[in-house]
Amino acid sequence: MPDAHAAELPATRRRMSMTDSLCWLLAIAVTLLFFFPLYWAVSTSLRNPADTFTVTGIGIPFINFTPTLDNFRTELSTPEGFRALRTSLFVSITATLLALMLGMPAAYALARFRYWSNADITVWFLSQRVLPPVATLIPFYIVFRNIGLLDTPYALILINTTFVLPFVVVIMRQTFLDLPVELEESAMVDGASYFGAFMRIALPLAAPAAAATAMIIFAFTWNEFLFSSSLGITQTKMMPAHMAGAVDTRGIQFWFMATRALIAMIPPVLLALLAQRYIVRGLTLGAVKG
């Protein structure tokens, strides 16, 4: 029945596009739902404290209330807030660099050299991520207290480096595996050492992936809370601990809570967006290529 078939095709296509547009609307609705908490934080942070609970509707600035930047001004002008920001930056950047310096050669080694079992060594590095950090918290606390490193940024740097090292090893190993080995081997024929081949050939080619890895592990260090709240007691509060501390002392002040949450969130979220292309590979520890 050629006629019936011909008549069916456009109808099918119309029905398909109907499904597609329904799916599209559903996708937008879901995205908005997931975006709502962040939107609410922005909205709360722009309100006058007096407006916090009195806004109508869904709190759209200019429509439901008059926005103000006062909360941000107050928050950023406190010396504690500023110090927390500085500590966070110092710890996160140093831990990131240290993890890259230790992890990249190891990753390269696991991609290029033969060991008794490269897979087992890689999985051993990975097993760190499975370890509940609270199991190492108390020993670290006692040891750092005894050697006088408690409440210094160095304690936090050492620990965070350990936690993000597996990310570097596993992600960069995959990156090096994807690079053609011939380039390095021909460099070595021309007299380069293994170290030279790594530094001059492999490393520059792996630079984009290394940068993305750096952003992801920076975000992880920045967000870490268990250790930063336990070991950075007064002098070395990082942003998350600063936020928690302020809630304890000042009581619950929703406008500051939202403002501080936003200030804490912005750096890691921005970096993650920059590293978007590598997020899937990074967060699945190289197991899924995005």
């Binding site: 997931f34 908490p37 962040l38 975000a219 920045w222 967000n223 809370f225 942003m239 998350p240 936020m243 928690a244 501080r260 949450a261 936003l262 804490a264 969130m265 890691p268 979220v269 970096l271 993650a272 997020i279 967060l283």
Partner: peptide, 8 residues
């Protein structure tokens, strides 16, 4: 949401 600070 993935990279927002969990405490925040």
């Amino acid at each position: 949401p993935i990279f927002t600070t969990p405490v925040a």
